[in-house]
């Protein structure tokens, strides 16, 4: 087989061919059994060499694990200990000062005095709960986008399956609190974001704020995540929900964001965006 054809087959098998060359090559493979056999052989040969390369890499990785010195928790996290303790102390003080529960009764999950101005005047609901009742003075024929946004919220799989972390650094404590649905604690723990794990912390805080119905704050956090990183696409969707749910938000402020997701055929939340759009335009 000549070198050029071999390289072309390799490019095809590795997904490097671009249209229209890709279509031409696929048409040739479909009509030429010898070429189809050459493609299958080259692919098998490449994959066999890849399996051998994997073995060599695995050996290097395992050697790397074996050579890693165990690191102590305190040496990794000492710089966060003081701010975390201060934040915890402040949060604890505020919590007890703002919840004068009578003896023998537990404080409510979200005391009215702790609910910021941007919250909706409905009782606290978990993020995946059904939409709350519409206020009585609302025109019943006009759909309230905020209610649909809250109803459309489904916690992402990466957070819904969370059982809490065993580590005791800031993020670990926040994850444990999140698993216990103690969103207020999550927010107070993550007042200062750990720079090493900023994205994870920001994502967690954003969802906790959504859970507390602090939609404007949640929208700000999601906006940060939308700037880039692994949570970018998720944040576009959840940020949109937070913006829609913000009481002071105007429809034209978030319509273009909703359309952007609906018009992106590769967006993982496109279906949800279409569903939301349909409900809003019934």
């Amino acid at each position: 087989m000549n070198e050029k054809l071999y390289e072309l087959i390799e490019d095809y098998n590795l997904g490097r061919l671009k249209p229209p060359q890709l279509e031409q090559f696929e048409a040739a493979v479909a009509t030429d059994p010898a070429l189809a056999a050459a493609v299958a052989t080259q692919r098998a040969e490449w994959e066999m060499r890849e399996l051998l390369a994997e073995n060599a890499l695995r050996a290097q990785i395992r050697q790397g694990f074996a050579e890693q010195p165990p690191s102590l928790w305190i040496t990794r996290n000492w710089k966060w200990l003081l701010p975390v303790l201060l934040c915890l102390g402040a949060a604890g003080f505020l919590f007890y000062r703002n919840t004068p529960a009578p003896a023998g009764t537990l404080p409510p999950a979200v005391p009215p005095s702790a609910v910021p101005a941007d919250t909706v005047s409905t009782p606290q609901v978990p993020p995946s709960a059904p939409p709350p009742q519409q206020p009585e003075d609302r025109d019943k024929n006009t759909p309230d986008p905020r209610i649909y946004a809250m109803a459309a919220y489904e916690m992402p799989e990466s957070l819904s399956g969370m059982r809490g972390a065993n580590t005791e650094d800031t993020l670990g404590l926040a994850q444990t609190a999140f698993a216990e649905k103690n969103y207020r604690k999550v927010v107070s723990l993550l007042t200062v974001l750990p720079p090493d794990e900023r994205q994870e912390a920001l994502n967690l805080r954003a969802h906790a704020r959504f859970g507390l119905q602090r939609f404007a704050d949640a929208a700000r956090d999601f906006s940060e995540l939308e700037k880039g990183g692994v949570y970018r696409r998720e944040a576009q969707w959840y940020g949109l929900l937070a913006r829609v749910a913000t009481p002071s938000a105007k429809r034209n402020e978030w319509t273009k964001d909703l359309d952007a997701i609906r018009n992106d055929s590769t967006h993982p939340y496109r279906k949800q965006a279409n569903d939301l759009w349909q409900r809003l335009n019934k």
Partner: peptide, 23 residues
Amino acid sequence: ALQHFFENPRLLQWVVRQVRMQG
């Protein structure tokens, strides 16, 4: 470069944390 990955605690810790968080 491989050594850099292993010695960058963020990468391995991030993966282990994500996995442990989800059971």
